[in-house]
Amino acid sequence: MKKVLKTTGMVFLILFIAANIWAGGEQEVEKVEKKLVMAMVTNQSGLGDQSFNDAAWEGLAQAVEKYGIERKVLEAREQAQYVPNLSTLAEQNAALIVGVGFMIKDAVKETAEMFPNTNFAIVDGGVDLPNVASIHFKENEGAFLVGAIAAKVSKTGKIGYVGGMSTPVTNRMEAGYRAGAITVNPDIEIFISYAGTFADPAKGEEMAVPQYDQGADVIFQVAGQTGLGVINAAKKKGKYAIGIDRDQNYLAPKNVLSSMIKRVDIAVSNACGMVVNGTFEGKHYYYGIKEGAIDFATTGNLIPPDVVNYANMLKKKILSGEINPPSTYEELDAFTPPKL
């Protein structure tokens, strides 16, 4: 027994020394220069989601370049952690705290009330407080464009849509997408399914396969991690998928027809800039095609040039206000396809 204890002790001692050497001894000393710290709290998908959170993180990176700030992130694992995460950052005197996703709305409101002198921003949510900038995107505009592209490219006259959960944002995209499609082809058949989760690729594949089997040859996915399964299904079936938030062509260069691009990074980096320049205001900001924050991707050249031109034409009409893509089901019902 004693022997065992002694040996274990020795092993631990050696491990201790080895580990210390391997780790390179002392960590680097604290930075002398004090920079403005701007931070974000992710939603439950966290960094590495290839879309939303990563894009916001990139926005902060751009701000680091442009304004010389320091960026920081706290990843929330659960709903209950939003408030402590936001408050912790506020206590550490972050100059701007960005909350990502609509689920964080209550928490941003509560924390912003608790720290009235700290600037907050929320992506995809609205909080009416003087120290909170609410960032909204006109996803319906982008969805309208990819809807039109899908309808143009489709040979079967059938296209699909796979949403994550049924949320205001996904519903808004669905409305825009359907409006864009019927603008091109009033008789088009559109399959709609919601997977019920943003985090399950297998579920996404399960949703996409029947749509393809029923004849859809393009599916627009608005489903976060779940959407990766849709793209996978497209790859297996040799059909097209349309990506979301960022250019997702690299995931399947032959199958991701286009992506609806939502430049969260631009919005976040703008918010940082406003704080640095002292022009930060607690109000609602809307980002659309006009602000360069909504677009469609052409990577891979899978979209025929005439369709690209057609989409660009629609884009201009949206800019000029000639077309108003619907953003809710009610608006969709009232929407009449423009004569082109």
């Binding site: 706290l74 990843e75 694992r77 952690q81 402590p84 995460n85 912790t88 950052l89 550490q92």
Partner: peptide
């Protein structure tokens, strides 16, 4: 639970690492 927030905030310990 509450301490793990600070591990992330002060030293950037990865979320999964905290878990």
């Amino acid at each position: 639970r509450s301490g793990s927030v600070f591990m992330q905030a002060m030293y950037g310990v990865n979320k999964d690492m905290v878990s």
